[in-house]
């Protein structure tokens, strides 16, 4: 099962490395969102709550793009049949997709977090970075568990690219609430503040619940 997961994950990452379709598009959308937010808010620099909101809007928008494309390789040309014909546990497929989406999100953030620091953020990024990276990674895990499930559902529908963001955004509001609250303190004017323990806890619990839901439902989600 572990080897299967690694192999499936390698396939997804290799496809992305050769095709370079999803991650650049996600990063570009996130960057464009930051630029749009600069003009929409009419602010030269942001801090605290506004900065956290801007960062998370950009990340969420780019995540919905990634979620919509997560199962495209499988849905086209009978890719899913091929995957299901191999003697692979379906949970391995889920886990591989979650890790793939997580990797994509991290790659996007490696680009856009420094860009955000340069373009919009008022306080210095460097002192905030350790805590910010922690919250980002944790929330990425939550987005990835929700996203893998939503992506698998949405890809079956005719409205695939329309439905993925519509389904994903409401489902991601609870971790978003916790993430913005935690990030607002990290990006405050007077340097990073401590994070109340409940915010990371909410995000982690959410990721856990959706991970379990995914494992429980995956037999029904993956099919032809």
């Amino acid at each position: 099962m572990f080897r299967d997961t690694i192999n499936l994950l390698r396939k997804d990452l290799l496809l992305e490395a050769r095709g370079r379709e999803v991650v650049p598009a996600m990063a570009l959308l996130a960057l464009s969102t930051l630029v749009v937010l600069h003009f929409a808010l009419g602010q030269q620099s942001l801090d605290g709550k506004l900065a956290a909101g801007a960062l998370w809007i950009a990340i969420l928008f780019s995540a919905t793009l990634g979620i919509g494309r997560l199962f495209v390789a499988e849905s086209e040309d009978g890719g899913m049949d091929a995957v299901l014909l191999t003697p692979v546990d379906r949970v391995a497929i889920l886990v591989a997709k979650v890790i793939a989406l997580f990797t994509f999100l991290v790659m996007v953030q490696i680009v856009i977090v420094p860009a955000f620091g340069l373009l919009l953020l008022g306080p210095h990024l460097a002192p905030a970075l350790p805590k910010l990276v922690g919250i980002l990674l944790l929330t990425d895990a939550a987005i990835a568990t929700v996203g893998a499930l939503v992506g698998a559902i949405a890809v079956q529908s005719r409205l695939r690219d329309l439905l993925a963001p519509l389904l994903a955004l409401p489902l991601l509001i609870p971790p978003l609430i916790a993430a913005t609250h935690a990030t607002a303190g990290i990006l405050a004017v007077g340097g990073p503040e401590g994070i109340p323990g409940r915010w990371p806890l909410i995000i982690a619990l959410y990721a856990l619940v959706f991970g379990l839901l995914g494992i429980a439902l995956y037999d029904n989600v993956l099919d032809d």
Partner: peptide
Amino acid sequence: SVFAVVAGAFVPLNFAAVRLA
């Protein structure tokens, strides 16, 4: 049905999260 189960589980979670905030 998959949607119904996921969303049904989401209802209480969402209420708890929004309330905390």
